[in-house]
């Protein structure tokens, strides 16, 4: 890809971020709590899906365990505040390191084996961690952690009056995670990661230490997922195992990314922009049915996507763009024939 096309793409992202940053200035948006809530979740789930995209999309290693890393981050922040009466920040840092450590421990043996060991192992740790946290007294067991009322502001990452604080927090998370992936995508690490996905032996024949690349990607992905989890806990004012360490939550990391387009920068945002409003509106409509309905909707959408366009929404967008370009080229050809 040439440099000018890259710059143009970055301009698009910059414009998007500026637009998102200005949103709360529109009072119709800022005072609509439900809309703000949906926007915050879109940003959060975009960031979450993007963390998964690092190892699952660019790296081609399907992880079903991201709710564990997400949960560890949520517990890090939650315990700092609830158990130790601190600000959540040191907890977030510890959670990120712990999540990365767990990720490396799980992945190290799996990446040495070929096949689906990694997917199966990550699947298993969700169950293990969920059960462990349910009965672990120190982390609050099945009751979980309920946030006390603390002073509002960035220090405690807590706001009660409006959602604007959380909105900018989610936007910062979004910019951070997308910025990191954008940087990696165009540097050696990102190329190596994709090369390992496309052919591990081939990549190694070109000097790529595939094991180190995959482990690094996994650790980074897990640490950033933990950061997202911390945000989620702070936002919901509570953390419990079923909320943050469930297979449901893991599946959302996977589905949002695949629906949007795995291995592309825009994919996670596109996936979240479609699925999150759907999830929140179905919830608002059928609130009593609990968490099940949104997953059914997710599932149906994924089936349609996989049949229609395996590259996800970003693949569809690309197809449409190509189609328009061809149309335009054809139209130009037409006028030149008509011209005298």
């Amino acid at each position: 890809m040439n440099h000018r096309a890259l710059k143009r793409k970055d301009l698009f992202w910059l414009a998007l971020v500026v637009l998102l940053a200005l949103m709360p200035a529109v009072s119709a948006v800022a005072t609509n709590t439900f809309l703000m809530h949906v926007l915050i979740l879109i940003l959060l789930f975009s960031a979450m899906a993007q963390t998964w995209n690092i190892i699952g999309g660019y790296g081609g290693q399907t992880s079903f365990g991201h709710s564990v890393f997400f949960g560890i981050g949520a517990y890090g922040a939650g315990m700092a505040v609830v158990t130790y009466g601190l600000s959540p920040w040191p907890g977030i840092g510890i959670g990120m390191v712990a999540a990365a450590a767990v990720a490396v421990l799980i992945s190290y043996p799996c990446f040495k084996l070929s096949g689906h060991y990694f997917a199966i192992a990550t699947f298993a740790i969700v169950e293990i961690f969920h059960r462990m946290f349910l009965v672990w007294y120190w982390v609050g067991g099945a009751l979980g952690l309920d946030y006390p009322v603390v002073e509002q502001g960035l220090k405690n990452f807590m706001w009660y009056d409006t959602k604007t604080g959380y909105y900018y927090g989610a936007l910062a998370l979004f910019v951070l995670v997308f910025g990191i992936v954008r940087f990696l995508e165009s540097h050696r690490f990102g190329y190596y990661l994709r090369a390992v996905r496309e052919g591990q032996e081939t990549a190694e024949s070109l000097g790529v230490n595939s094991q180190a690349i995959k482990l690094t990607a996994m650790a980074l992905s897990a640490a950033l997922a933990a950061m997202c989890g911390a945000f989620f806990g702070q936002y919901n004012l509570r953390v419990d195992p079923s909320m943050v360490m469930s297979l449901d939550m893991s599946m959302k990391f996977v589905l949002v990314t695949i629906l949007g387009g795995a291995g592309t920068l825009a994919g996670p945002l596109l996936g979240a922009a479609v699925l999150i409003p759907l999830q929140e509106y179905t919830r608002a409509l059928w609130g009593g049915l609990g968490g099940g309905v949104d997953l059914i909707v997710f599932g149906v959408l994924i089936i349609i996507i996989v049949i229609k366009q395996p590259a996800g929404i970003s693949g569809m967008v690309r197809d449409i763009a190509k189609h328009i370009e061809r149309r335009r080229a054809a139209a130009k050809g037409g006028t030149s024939i008509d011209a005298p």
């Binding site: 890809m1 190329y191 994709r194 090369a195 996905r197 496309e198 052919g199 032996e201 081939t202 990549a203 190694e204 024949s205 070109l206 000097g207 790529v208 230490n209 595939s210 291995g263």
Partner: peptide
């Protein structure tokens, strides 16, 4: 030695049965 180390030392090979990294340009 693992193959990536040998490549890093400067001995690099091609594959008779071609192995393009298909999805990459």
């Amino acid at each position: 030695l693992p193959s990536f180390r040998i490549a890093r030392l400067g001995a690099v090979r091609t594959f008779q049965v071609v192995r393009p990294l298909k999805e990459m340009t």
